[in-house]
Design a protein around this nucleic acid. Structure first.
Length: 304
DNA sequence: CGATTTTGACCCGCGC
DNA sequence: GCGCGGGTCAAAATCG
């Protein structure tokens, strides 16, 4: 249980996982942030062209790079950031496997999260945008945790649960309890690896977290961001409120935000992936080949 | 008693 | 047009 990861991330020159996330709600755009001050030292590639409604960005692509345990593996995995070519469904499978191979310390929670934007108008040519229901950008996180619903500082109300095809685990639907806040999230477990919880956020919080944020300055200094709500396990307060938990995380960012979704599943060269390793600043690396880590969300779902 | 969860029904988009 | 699957609704049940 430590905030070790987070703490160290903070120490690093770049913002860490939690900070990034805590900024989501109040930043102009997570992507802007990413491309701007947030990760000035990182090479941000052009936006990912999300053809799929949800482009899942797989953070951990290799056993050792995916998650870093600050508890027992600190210093062990720091530089083990391999890349896995993900260029199709086969690779997707491989990636899944890699995730499963992820080593983590007992009692720790590995947050392997992927942030992907969903074009609100990822509509197919068939119908006009006005005809189709507009979707908020979505962001998915893969969290290695025994707990389905992680505390993230916001209050959620479950409004539905559905069985997922080809998966023994149901998918739960949550909505932010705050009035006028239409943020939703879906929580489901990977059928391949029950220890992995996939949380997908949709929409933006129109209010600050009801729980006292860890870094008020960082949070409140920014205006509300409209497309990215603080995900589970993403906010600092979550870590604080769950000292017994020990989070490991690595991050990849990408977005397909403004693109009208293409129809193929090819991950565009516009992917912008940033891998954050909380363990140490040394871990804060960028894989220039990370586009290859991009896996169409729909494809992953297919597997499950 | 209010808030939240559960759960079956319903709606809608999509593919065939 | 039809069936399937994802997402949401809403009444009932449960919880604090």
């Amino acid at each position: 249980m430590e905030l070790l990861g987070y703490g160290e991330a903070e120490k690093s020159s770049s913002l860490g996982f939690m900070e990034l996330l805590s900024m989501q709600d109040f930043g102009p755009s997570v992507f802007d942030v990413l491309q701007g001050a947030l990760i000035p030292s990182l090479q941000v590639e052009p936006l990912l062209q999300a053809d799929s409604p949800e482009v899942f960005m797989n953070a951990p692509t290799t056993p050792n790079s995916s998650s870093i345990s600050s508890e027992s593996t600190a210093g062990q995995n720091d530089e083990q950031t391999k890349e896995v070519v993900v260029d199709g469904e086969e690779e997707e499978e491989e990636e899944e496997e890699n995730i499963h191979k992820t080593k983590k310390t007992k009692h720790s929670t590995d947050i392997m999260f992927a942030i992907f934007g969903v074009c609100g108008n990822r509509l197919k040519p068939k119908k006009t945008a006005s005809q189709k229901r507009q979707r908020e950008p979505r962001f998915a996180f893969m969290t290695k945790s025994e707990v389905d619903h992680l505390e993230d500082g916001y209050r959620w109300r479950k409004y539905g649960q559905k069985a997922v095809k080809n998966s023994p685990f149901p998918r739960s639907y949550y909505r932010c309890t705050s009035a006028s806040c239409n943020v939703k999230k879906r929580v489901e477990r990977s059928c391949n690896d029950p220890t992995i919880v996939v949380t997908t956020y949709e929409g933006q919080h129109t209010h600050p977290s009801p729980v006292m944020p860890r870094s008020p300055a960082a949070v409140h200094a920014l205006p509300p961001y409209s497309g990215f709500s603080a995900p589970d396990g993403a906010s600092a307060e979550m870590l604080l409120s769950h000292p017994q938990q020990h989070f490991n995380y690595s991050v990849l960012f990408s977005s397909g935000y403004t693109h009208a979704g293409p129809t193929n599943n090819t991950v565009s060269s516009g992917a912008q992936n940033l891998r954050f390793c909380s363990q140490s600043s040394a871990l804060l690396t960028v894989d220039h080949g990370l586009l290859q880590d991009v896996v169409p969300w729909s494809a992953i779902k297919k597997e499950e």
